[in-house]
C-alpha cells in the first residue's frame, strides 16, 4: 500500500460505505486515471491549433494557381473523405513511424546494404530505431503521444481544409475587388481582406469539427496511449483480494458511465462557449443572424 491521501485509508478492510469509496477513489492508480483526463485535454489543446494550421495550408494550396500545388491541396482534402477515419488512425501511426525510421536510417546508416523490407519485417539499423531501444519509458510514451497528435492533426487538418476552402469562397468577391481597386497585390488582398473576414463563415463548420474532435479523443486508446479508456478498463475489471486492498466485482460499466457523463458535460460546455463566440462574431454582420440581433436590440 503506497501513500494515501486520507489518514484513515491505511487499512481499507476495516472501513465501509462512503469512507471506503473516498479511499478507493484516491488510490495511486485512480490518480493516474485523473491525470489521463489531462492527456485528453492536452491532446485537444495541441491538436486543435495544429489541425487548423494544416487545414489553412491545405486550403491555401488548393487555391493555388500552380497546378501541382493545387492538386496536393485538393488531394489532401479529398483522400480523407469516403474512407472510415478509424482506418486512417490505424494506418497513419504505422506509416508515420516507418517513415521517420526510414529517414533516420538513410541519414545515420548510409553503409547499410540489406533491404528495409525483409519479407514481412520492417528492419532499420539500431541507431535509427525510434525511440532508441535503451531510451527511458517516458520517451516511449512521449513519442507515442507525438505520433497520435500528428495523426489527429493530419486527419482533422483535412476536414479543416475543407471548411476553410468553403469559407474563403464565401467571402464576397466585391470585397477582394475593392482591395484590388486600392492597388493591393494578390498577397495583400489575401492576408488583409480575405483572411480576416473568412472566420465568420468558417465558424459553424469549425465548431462542428471541434465537437467531432472531442468525440474522437477515445480513439487515443487504439493508438496505444494510456488514456481514459485504458484506465477505465483496467480499474473497472474484477479485482480479487489477493492483488488489491479494494476488491470489487466487474465495475467497468460504471467507469464507462462516468466517461459518458464526462463527454456529455464537455460537449454541453463547448456548445455554450461556441454559441457565445458565434453571437459575438455575427454582431454587426450583414447576415440573417446579424439582422435578427439588430432587431432584437432595437
Amino acid at each position: 500500500m503506497g501513500a494515501t491521501i486520507f489518514s484513515y485509508c491505511s487499512d481499507p478492510s476495516t472501513i465501509e460505505g462512503l469512507k471506503w469509496l473516498s479511499c478507493y477513489l484516491t488510490t495511486g492508480k485512480h490518480i493516474s486515471m485523473y491525470w489521463s483526463f489531462g492527456t485528453v485535454l492536452l491532446l485537444l489543446a495541441i491538436t486543435a491549433p495544429t489541425a487548423l494550421a494544416f487545414g489553412f495550408a491545405g486550403a491555401t494550396a488548393a487555391r493555388s494557381r500552380i497546378a501541382p500545388v493545387s492538386w496536393i491541396g485538393k488531394g489532401y482534402t479529398a483522400i480523407v473523405r469516403g474512407v472510415p477515419d478509424i482506418a486512417f488512425f490505424l494506418f497513419f501511426v504505422i506509416a508515420l513511424d516507418q517513415l521517420f525510421e526510414w529517414i533516420r536510417h538513410e541519414v545515420k546508416c548510409p553503409d547499410w546494404t540489406d533491404p528495409i523490407r525483409q519479407g514481412n519485417d520492417f528492419v532499420v539499423c539500431t541507431e535509427a530505431k525510434l525511440p532508441l531501444g535503451n531510451a527511458a519509458a517516458w520517451v516511449h510514451d512521449t513519442y507515442a503521444f507525438f505520433l497520435a497528435v500528428l495523426t489527429f492533426s493530419i486527419v482533422f487538418g483535412a476536414f479543416a481544409a475543407n471548411v476553410l476552402t468553403g469559407a474563403m469562397r464565401a467571402v464576397p468577391r466585391a470585397q477582394i475587388e475593392t482591395g484590388e481597386a486600392y492597388g493591393m497585390t494578390e498577397r495583400q488582398t489575401f492576408w488583409r481582406i480575405m483572411v480576416p473576414q473568412m472566420w465568420v463563415y468558417a465558424l459553424p463548420g469549425l465548431s462542428n469539427l471541434w465537437m467531432v474532435l472531442i468525440k474522437a479523443t477515445p480513439l487515443l486508446f487504439l493508438l496505444g496511449i494510456e488514456d481514459i479508456v485504458y484506465w477505465a478498463r483496467d480499474l473497472g475489471a474484477t479485482k480479487t483480494p489477493k492483488f488489491t486492498d479494494y476488491p470489487h466485482g466487474d465495475w467497468r460499466m460504471w467507469y464507462f458511465l462516468a466517461l459518458l457523463v464526462f463527454y456529455l458535460c464537455f460537449t454541453k460546455l463547448s456548445e455554450i462557449v461556441l454559441d457565445r463566440i458565434n453571437r459575438r462574431l455575427t454582431l454587426g454582420q450583414a447576415t440573417a443572424a446579424g439582422e435578427a440581433q439588430r432587431k432584437a436590440a432595437a
Binding site: K215, P218, L219, D250, R252, M253, F256, L264, K268
Partner: peptide
C-alpha cells in the same frame, strides 16, 4: 443529446459492459 453528445466508441464500451452485467 445523449447519443449525439458522446463518442460512439464510449457508447459501445458502456453498452457492452452493461450487457455483460445484465447477462449476469
Amino acid at each position: 443529446f445523449v447519443f449525439r453528445g458522446s463518442p460512439l466508441f464510449i457508447q459501445f464500451f458502456f453498452a457492452y459492459f452493461a450487457f455483460v452485467s445484465l447477462k449476469g
